[in-house]
Amino acid sequence: MGFGDWLSRTFGGSEPEPAPLPKPPGEPEILASLEHVDRLLADSGASPLVRSRVTRIGRTIREILPRLATLGVGSQDAYAVVATATNYLPESVAAYLRLPRDWADSRPIDGGRTALMVLIDQLELLRSSMDSMLDAAVHADAQALIAQGRFLDAKFGRVTPTVPDTAPAPPPAASSSSNTLDLG
């Protein structure tokens, strides 16, 4: 029992209510964050290398959003998608954009790599991770399709498609007329 507990018991005070946890970002906040990054890049004159990678990451996150629950509410995968959209991607891009363009693109800052190279590496890592998250989210839908096919097969049996007979008709049988050759 701590001193605060003793005071509360002695003087009749109640325990202070813990502050409520903030609600995790939902789809509107995620989309707003991606749009913010797009605006930052549009106004910055950033390299097309950066813009194309950020665009791809944003497109992948937008594809994942309708399937986010498929990854599992509160799962590490769902968290990674939300954090990438609302934190990792915006922070990486903003840190790069705070640097003067010419300096960032030409001066080594980390083991001979320029800020542009460092950012490209970060964006490639985020892209690869989001591609994996999309695969995981879509995998559940693909499994549902497979399960439905197995159900239908069990219910109705395998039906093989019929192909119309397009083979040419056999030639007419040779008659014993004078058109036959006698070789013998």
Rank of each mutant, 00 (worst) to 15 (best):
S44G: 12
L31S: 09
S176K: 04
R113D: 11
A169P: 09
A136V: 00
A174Q: 15
S47N: 06
E27P: 09
L116T: 02
G149V: 13
S44E: 10
G74F: 07
S33F: 03
D5Q: 09
L41W: 04
A142K: 10
Q122C: 08
Y88E: 08
S8A: 11
D38R: 15
G13Q: 12
S132W: 12
T70M: 10
D102Y: 02
D77A: 06
L65D: 07
A32F: 09
G112R: 06
S178F: 15
E63H: 12
E63F: 11
D105V: 01
P48W: 08
S177R: 02
F156C: 09
L125H: 08
G111S: 07
A42E: 08
K155V: 06
A115W: 01
A173N: 07
G2H: 10
G45W: 06
G13V: 10
G12F: 03
T114L: 15
T84G: 03
P28T: 02
P20F: 12
P171C: 04
G184S: 13
G74R: 02
A104I: 02
G184F: 12
I64F: 12
S177V: 04
S128Q: 12
R101Q: 14
S14A: 15
T160A: 14
S47W: 03
S176W: 07
S44Q: 02
P172S: 09
G72I: 00
V93T: 00
P66I: 03
P22D: 04
T55P: 11
V93N: 01
L21E: 10
I64G: 03
P164K: 06
L71V: 04
D43R: 15
R39I: 07
R53V: 00
A115G: 06
P48K: 14
V163W: 05
L145G: 08
F151N: 11
